[in-house]
Computed example of a mutant assay.
Amino acid sequence: MKIVFAGTPAFAASALEHLHGAGFEIALVMTQPDRPAGRGMQLQASAVKQFAQAHGLPVAQPRGLRLDGRYAEDAAAAQARLAALRADAMVVAAYGLILPQWVLDLPRLGCFNIHASLLPRWRGAAPIHRAIEAGDALTGNTIMQMDAGLDTGDMLLTEPVPIAPDDSTGSLHDKLAARGGPLVCEVLRQAERGALQPQRQPAEGVTYAAKIDKAEAAIDWSQDAVQIARRVRAFDPFPGASTALDGTAIKIWSAEALEGHAADAGAAPGTVLAAGADGVFVRCGQGVLRASVLQRAGGKRLPADGFLRGHPLPAGSLLA
Rank of each mutant, 00 (worst) to 15 (best):
S254M: 09
A267H: 11
R233W: 03
I250N: 10
A257M: 03
S242Y: 02
S242E: 14
L245F: 11
G266K: 02
P239T: 05
P237F: 05
L245V: 13
D264E: 15
D224W: 06
R230T: 06
K251G: 05
R230E: 12
A262K: 11
A263D: 15
A262C: 00
A262P: 00
G260M: 03
K251R: 11
K251E: 14
P237L: 07
I252K: 00
A257I: 05
S242Q: 13
R233D: 06
F238D: 15
V232Y: 02
D246V: 03
A255R: 00
A267P: 01
I228Q: 02
P239R: 03
E256I: 05
F235S: 10
E256Y: 09
F238H: 13
A263C: 07
L258S: 00
S254A: 15
A249G: 09
G247Y: 06
L245G: 08
A267V: 07
A257P: 07
V226C: 07
L258Y: 02
A234C: 04
G266C: 04
I250K: 06
I252C: 13
R233S: 10
F238G: 05
I252D: 05
G260I: 04
A262I: 09
R233I: 04
A244K: 11
D264S: 14
D246A: 15
I250Y: 09
